[in-house]
Amino acid sequence: LPPRNAPAAARRIGSDHPVFGYFGNLNPWKGVAVLLEAARQLIAEGLEFELRVHGGAPFQSESFIDEITRLFEETAPTVQQRGPYRREDVADLVAAVDCTIVPSIWWENAPLVIQEAQALGRPVLASNIGGMAEMIEDGANGLTVAPNDPRALASAMRRLAQDGALARRLSAHAREPENIDTTARRYLDLIEAIEPSRIEAA
Rank of each mutant, 00 (worst) to 15 (best):
A167W: 15
V32C: 13
P123S: 06
P111Q: 04
E134V: 06
S171G: 13
G14P: 00
A44I: 01
E137C: 08
T183V: 11
R185L: 10
E200N: 09
A10Q: 01
S104T: 02
P3A: 00
I191P: 13
E67W: 11
W29G: 10
R186T: 13
L36G: 03
L188F: 12
S127D: 08
R87Q: 15
Y187H: 14
W29K: 10
L188M: 15
P28E: 00
I114P: 07
A39D: 00
L26V: 08
L51P: 02
A172H: 04
A133G: 07
N128G: 15
V97K: 00
R87G: 15
A156S: 12
G46K: 07
P147A: 13
A172K: 04
S127E: 10
I13N: 08
P84S: 04
A8C: 05
A167Y: 08
S127V: 12
V124T: 07
I68Q: 00
Y22R: 06
A167S: 13
F20D: 03
Q162C: 07
I199N: 13
A117R: 01
L125P: 09
P150E: 00
L1W: 10
N128A: 14
R198N: 11
D138C: 09
L71W: 02
R4K: 09
Q60N: 14
A110M: 13
P123R: 07
M132I: 12
I114T: 02
